[in-house]
Amino acid sequence: MTDVALETRNLGKRYRKLWALKDFSVSLPANKVIALVGANGAGKSTLMSIAAGILPATEGDVRVAGRVVLLSQDKPLYRSFSVTDMLNFGRHMNTVWDQQRALDWLGRFAIPLDRPCGKLSGGQQTQVAMAVALGARPSLLLLDEPLANLDPVARREVTGELLAEVAENDMTVVLSTHVVAELAGVGDHLLLLREGRSTLDGDVDELLSQHARLVGPRADSPPVEGQIVQSGHTERQSTFVVRTLLGPETPMPAQWQAQPLTLEDLVLAYLKAAASGVREL
């Protein structure tokens, strides 16, 4: 359980003058679903491309255990290839290939095998790209915004099937997204990126149990010890999002309430804090 799927040390990537990743060190656990969250341009795609080995890092190291497959944002397929051809492509271009797994995936979503990929709907194309990715039997599957062009029903279905694949195989999935609301119950592990750095990194349940929204009478600081993630004040009331050991279970003085956060609340609190932090600077 403590195996590491992806480890980076002081990883950096510079595009001309701009650092897309800087001094980036994380260690992501194996056989988990890792939610990679961040605003556009935070470095999610860059991190995935480097991990997949298709983009050289400017500095630092990245170590990956086993086979890596990246499914990039625009789900590239050869438009003139039939679905069967795409599977043949996967079979011919990889040293390891599981045709049955790919066919099973396509079968679950009733994708016609003989149709050219260019004539499939956006959602169907995503399924073909997923099938090719899964057929390569990755131990680390990097999915860059995989659900972007799916309708809500299909999103749920794909997420479910994908999670089942994780449960049944030795596979770690890194899922980048900016639709945080859909991550509840999906990700085991959260990695929050901001401007090329890791802002928050940990087990989702642990993180949620360590954070709380404290609401009480107007005050300059929260009534308990802890890292203040976000604070807001009205004339009479103060709200703090804090990180403390006990989170929502923290004993509160009178007039104060500690409320648990949803995953979305948590992510938004960190992202907003980051944004306001920039303004202060």
């Binding site: 491309s49 997949a52 298709i54 590239p76 397929l77 050869y78 271009m93 040293t95 090719v132 390569a136």
Partner: peptide, 15 residues
């Protein structure tokens, strides 16, 4: 043009 290079190059066969 068809943005398929990330696909071609992320298989086991290197670029």
């Amino acid at each position: 043009e068809q943005r398929t290079l990330p696909l071609a190059w992320s298989q086991d066969v290197g670029r």
